[in-house]
Design a protein around this nucleic acid. Structure first.
Lengths: 170, 170
DNA sequence: GATGAAACTTGTTATGA
DNA sequence: TCATAACAAGTTTCATC
C-alpha cells in the first residue's frame, strides 16, 4: 500500500529502506545483473572475484534488502502486437488530491501502461503506453479523459525508446 | 547502429523483424519471463504446460528473433545513491536534424540517463534520469543546455515511478 | 563475512517416437 | 512436439577459517 490507508500511515515518513552503503563488490554484482539478469551464479562470482557461495549470499541479501527489486525479461512491444508507443501527460482536477491512490491504482492496471511517472509541475502523471495502433491509442486517451478526476491530457507519439544498460565495467 | 551511418542505411526501411505471429504458448512464456526472468526452465515449462526441452527451444527462439531483447535486474535507484529522479524534456535546434544520431549517442552514454524517449511534437527527447541530488541534477541540466544542438529544456521532478508488471495470468 | 568442497538440483543435449 | 535418459553444469549447504 504505497498510498497509505489511514492518517497514521499517510503522515508517516517513508520506510527506512535499510540504506547501508554498498561496497565495490555489491556495485559490481548489480552492474552485471542489470546487464544480464540470467548470468549464472558461478560466472557472476568469477566476474567479480569472489567465491560462488559468497556471491549467492550477497545477491540474496541485495534482493532481500530491496536493492534488487526483481528480474524481468525485456520484450519488444512491437513483436507482441503493440507497435505504437506514446507518452500521455495527465493533469488531474484540483479537487482530486485525496484520490490520487485511486487513480494510480486504475492506470497501473491498464494493460497498455508500461510506466507510470508521478511528477511535480503542471502535469500530475506521465504515462508511457504501448498500443496496437492509432485506434487503440485514441480509445485509451478517450477513456482517460472520461475519468472524473482527469482535467486534461496531452499525448506525444514515441518514435523510439532506448534504455541504456551500462556495461558491467562501470 | 540504430541511427544509420550512410545514405543507404538511413533511407532503408526498418529491419523486417520477423513478425511471425506468436501463439498462446509464446505469450504465456513471455508473461512469465517478464514477471520473473529467473524462473527455471523446468518451472517455466510446467507453468505453461509444455516439455522442458520444448520450452528451452521456444525461449531460445524468442530471444534469437528479438522478441526478448534481454533480461535485466531492476535496481532501486535510491539504494545506489540516486534518489532524485526527473523527466527532462529536450528541444533541439531546428538545424540539428541531421545530427540526431550524435545527440542520441551522447545522452545514452550519460550514466544518469535511464530512459531516452524520442518523441514527436514540440519536444524532441524526454530523458528519464536518476541523480544523487539537486546539485547533480542541476549540473546535468546545465550540461545539456550547454550543448550546441539544444534549444531548451524543461525539467519535472519525479515523485514516484511504477512499472506495472502484469501477472503471468494475463 | 568469506571460503572450498561435498551433496544436491537443474539445465542441456541427444535419441527415438 | 514430446518423453526419456545420460551427462554437464549450476546451486546450495556446511564446516571452517
Amino acid at each position: 500500500m504505497r498510498e497509505g490507508s489511514d492518517d497514521a500511515t499517510r503522515l508517516a515518513a517513508a520506510p527506512p529502506n535499510d540504506v547501508r552503503p554498498l561496497d565495490e563488490v555489491d556495485r559490481a554484482l548489480l552492474a552485471h545483473l542489470v546487464a544480464d539478469a540470467r548470468v549464472t551464479n558461478a560466472a557472476l562470482a568469477e566476474a567479480v572475484g569472489i567465491a560462488p557461495s559468497t556471491c549467492l549470499a550477497r545477491v540474496r541479501s541485495l534482493r532481500e534488502r530491496g536493492v534488487i527489486r526483481g528480474y524481468h525479461a525485456d520484450v519488444d512491444p512491437a513483436a507482441v502486437g503493440l507497435p505504437l508507443q506514446a507518452m500521455i501527460s495527465v493533469r488531474l482536477q484540483s479537487d482530486a488530491r485525496d484520490r490520487l491512490g485511486e487513480f494510480t491504482g486504475l492506470v497501473r492496471r491498464l494493460p497498455e501502461v508500461r510506466d507510470v511517472y508521478f511528477v511535480a509541475g503542471e502535469d500530475d502523471y506521465l504515462l508511457h503506453v504501448a498500443t496496437a495502433g492509432t485506434g487503440a491509442l485514441r480509445d485509451l486517451v478517450a477513456r482517460l479523459n472520461a475519468h472524473r478526476d482527469v482535467a486534461g491530457t496531452v499525448t506525444s507519439l514515441i518514435f523510439d525508446h532506448l534504455r541504456p544498460v551500462p556495461a558491467p565495467g562501470s
